[in-house]
Simulated scan of single mutants.
Amino acid sequence: MNKLFILLLSIVIFASCSKSKDIEVEPAEQKRPFVDFEAVPGDDPFTFDFKNNSKEYKKLEWRFGDDSVSYETTPKHIFASAGTFEVNLTAIAEDGSTAKKWSLLKLYRTVL
């Protein structure tokens, strides 16, 4: 009787220790940022309004190619001299992913 009890107890324990099923969890959809901008000339040849057309971002970083940086959404920038400037816009999403766009801006000194 004792052996029968141990055998039944072993079967019950073995049956209750079955492997659990894996549960698949789909990750939340992460939207990558989209970055786009336009440089709109201002009242003089060195002033520009930068129109932000980006989407799905948490913060922005503008670099104007003259060692200046802005974190505004739609900054106005005045360049100090003529030249070729590489304007970069980086859009950073909530999850840390980034998108970048750059554009060359050529400014000429006007002679009257």
Rank of each mutant, 00 (worst) to 15 (best):
S10E: 13
K100W: 00
T84E: 15
N2K: 13
K59I: 00
T73D: 10
W102H: 14
S81L: 14
P75C: 00
P33M: 03
F34C: 06
L107I: 15
K55T: 09
K101E: 06
P33V: 05
F50T: 11
K58P: 01
G96Q: 00
K51W: 12
G96H: 03
F46D: 06
S70R: 05
E86I: 06
E72R: 04
S20E: 05
P27D: 05
T73E: 12
K100R: 06
V40H: 04
L105G: 12
S70G: 04
F48Q: 14
G96D: 00
I11D: 08
S81Y: 12
W102V: 11
V111G: 07
K51A: 13
T74I: 05
S54W: 05
S68G: 03
I78D: 01
K101V: 06
G42D: 04
F5Y: 13
F46W: 10
I6W: 14
E56N: 09
V87K: 10
M1V: 07
G83V: 11
K58T: 02
L104W: 12
K106H: 14
E24D: 00
N52A: 08
F48E: 13
G96Y: 03
T74K: 09
T74W: 10
T98Y: 01
D36E: 15
K76W: 01
A99Q: 00
E38V: 12
P45N: 08
K19Y: 11
I78W: 00
S10H: 10
E29Y: 00
E26K: 14
Y57D: 02
L8G: 15
S54T: 06
E29P: 00
S18Y: 12
A93T: 00
S70C: 02
A28C: 02
Y108T: 15
S81I: 12
K58L: 12
K21A: 05
E26M: 12
S70F: 02
E94Q: 07
K76D: 07
N53V: 04
D67T: 03
V87P: 07
L107T: 12
S97K: 08
N88D: 08
I23D: 06
L7A: 13
P75V: 01
F14V: 14
F48G: 13
L60D: 05
D36I: 13
L89K: 03
A39E: 07
I92H: 01
E94F: 01
F5D: 14
I11F: 13
T98Q: 08
D66I: 04
S54K: 02
S18A: 10
N88K: 12
E38T: 12
E72Q: 07
W102K: 12
S10A: 15
T74M: 11
F50I: 15
A28T: 07
F14A: 15
V35F: 02
P45K: 09
N52F: 08
K76G: 07
H77W: 05
G96M: 02
E86M: 06
I92P: 00
E38H: 11
I6F: 15
F50H: 08
S16L: 13
S68C: 02
G42R: 02
F5C: 11
